[in-house]
Write a protein that binds this DNA or RNA. Structure first.
Ligand SMILES: [Mn+2]
Ligand SMILES: [Mn+2]
Ligand SMILES: [Zn+2]
Ligand SMILES: [Zn+2]
Lengths: 145, 145
DNA sequence: CTGACATTGATAGCCATTCTCATTTAGGAG
DNA sequence: CTCCTAAATGAGAATGGCTATCAATGTCAG
């Protein structure tokens, strides 16, 4: 997906949610894109400057609501954000339990498919409606080893 | 694992961590065992009465440190706890995105094994040391549908 | 241009969790 | 059974990531 296509898709998503694609929101998207991995609010504020903390929180919430961005849950106390899978691709996370850093990884199509099948079976048995699955690998990153 | 075996194992884990198996901690373990699913601090306080909130927080931290208990990460703002897998068995979680409730499920040995293999391959490639994996199914529970 | 309304940003408030500390408890030595 | 000492307890204060507020600013249709 080129930068322009991405921007068009984001604009459409925001429009559908009655939200404007403002300067601050563009800056957020750019920061997330540049990071290439889930980042904390503090990291965003450090990287892209001129952003007000309160606006970052509010806009990330707005972007999440519109489906542009996803909040990534980890073990530490800081929320992390990344571009939503609809704008990138389905993937999973390596989480370093020492420094908290989060990296992306993907399973092969074959593994992913059989996992998905197993999960749908589980969900059916439990009477659950599946929205998504989340697979994290928790460990120690090379830098912390 | 019988109740006595469980208690012995817990006592050993606590001893190794220089912690006592006190009345309050026994009450916590009993509450987690009775619940049979990850529970919030509030749920613990409601179920087992006579426990001081501050002690529950402190003791859950101590039990986690000793490896008796695990903090379960979900989407909502409340921490949940369950007995550690070393005292039960490896499993995963169904998370209701409406009410926040969490339920256990297991994959078949075959699926789990091939997943584990794929994950170790990923970890090796990334230079990660694997501690654990976490697989959650997010959706809507029958009660909330 | 002008009104209506969304967005912004500084700041105050919220609340789950953690910290503090005086008091109580419990296990070991004698 | 005492002491003695260190761990544990519990009520309350403090912390800190996040959210709500609201006056000021920006945006766009008419
Ligand atoms: Mn990611
Ligand atoms: Mn569980
Ligand atoms: Zn690390
Ligand atoms: Zn539910």
């Amino acid at each position: 997906m080129t930068g322009d296509e991405l921007d068009d898709e984001i604009a459409a998503l925001l429009q559908r949610a009655d939200q404007r694609y403002t300067k601050g929101r563009r800056a957020l998207v750019a920061a997330l894109r540049a990071a290439g991995q889930p980042v904390t609010i503090l990291q965003i504020l450090d990287a892209a400057d001129g952003l007000a903390q309160s606006s970052v929180y509010r806009n990330l919430a707005a972007l999440e609501e519109a489906g542009v961005v996803t909040r990534v849950i980890t073990n530490d106390e800081f929320a992390r954000y990344e571009l939503a899978e609809r704008l990138t691709e389905h993937h999973h996370h390596l989480i370093c339990s020492m420094c908290g850093d989060v990296f992306d990884f993907s399973l092969g199509a074959r593994t992913e498919a059989s996992l998905d099948k197993a999960l749908h079976r589980v969900a059916d048995d439990a009477g659950f409606t599946v929205e998504a699955h989340r697979l994290d690998l928790v460990g120690t990153c090379p830098r912390c080893d």
